[in-house]
């Protein structure tokens, strides 16, 4: 109950709602970083995944990437990027989050495309669609549900790991938690936890909603 009281005290202090280390700024930082990293991830991983998926050679590769990706802890990636870049703040955080987003996005794109019914693809070729058309008009729409699932997985990972970025001196909501721990300030720590949880859950719901909207589209007709 002490915790709730301290949380309330922290939240009701108006100075915590403005300025570069205020709650709104850090929330926006967190959302922005997540969006940027995911955006980069999509631009890199999806076209690559589409190409490899279309050639139907990627399943073994995908399985191996998943296994390796899962074994390396996100925290470890952050630390490795940190010692490799020899930087603190935005850059190592951004690179880490992009790397994290690549695995689910790439793997699900490859799998999504590869798992499209070969008969459907065959029929499309038989009707005279070019390879490019097969990919864009048949494989991509049919693989979309799985690609979006990958996006959702990537989102969850990226939002979570963005909180760790405070450990390499970047901002975002993780700062409240890490500083709260360091300063034994439960109010600050809980504020960070609460907001990051909100961002994650709301974001996840949004992605889920978009996923549902997208998958009823092509299936509806």
């Amino acid at each position: 109950m002490d915790g709730l009281l301290e949380l309330w005290t922290y939240l009701s202090d108006v100075t915590h709602w403005s300025g570069p280390s205020g709650i709104p700024t850090r929330t926006i930082q967190h959302v922005w970083m997540t969006t940027l990293a995911l955006g980069t991830g999509v631009v890199v991983a999806v076209p690559l995944g589409m190409w490899i998926g279309h050639r139907r050679r990627g399943s073994l590769l995908a399985v191996n990437i998943v296994n390796i990706g899962r074994a390396i802890p996100a925290f470890g990636i952050l630390a490795l990027v940190f010692i490799a870049t020899e930087r603190i703040g935005f850059l190592p955080s951004y690179i880490t989050l992009v790397i994290l987003s690549l695995v689910p996005l790439f793997v699900n794109t490859v799998t999504g495309i590869e798992e499209v019914d070969p008969d459907v693809v065959d029929a499309a070729r038989g009707m005279g669609l070019s390879e490019r058309q097969v990919l864009w008009r048949v494989e991509l729409p049919l693989g979309m549900p799985l690609i979006l699932t990958g996006f959702r997985l990537a989102f969850v990972d990226v939002v979570a790991t963005a909180t760790l970025a405070a450990l390499v001196a970047w901002g975002g909501l993780g700062r409240f938690i890490i500083d709260g721990f360091a300063q034994l300030d439960q109010g600050q720590m809980l504020t960070g936890a609460l907001f990051v949880a909100l961002v994650a859950v709301v974001g996840d719901r949004l992605v889920l909603w978009a996923e549902a909207a997208a998958s009823t589209g092509p299936r509806g007709n």
Binding site: V159, A160, I177, G192, A197, A200, V201
Partner: peptide
Amino acid sequence: TIPSLAIFAL
């Protein structure tokens, strides 16, 4: 979905 750091903090 909730980041682990947040769970620990909570």
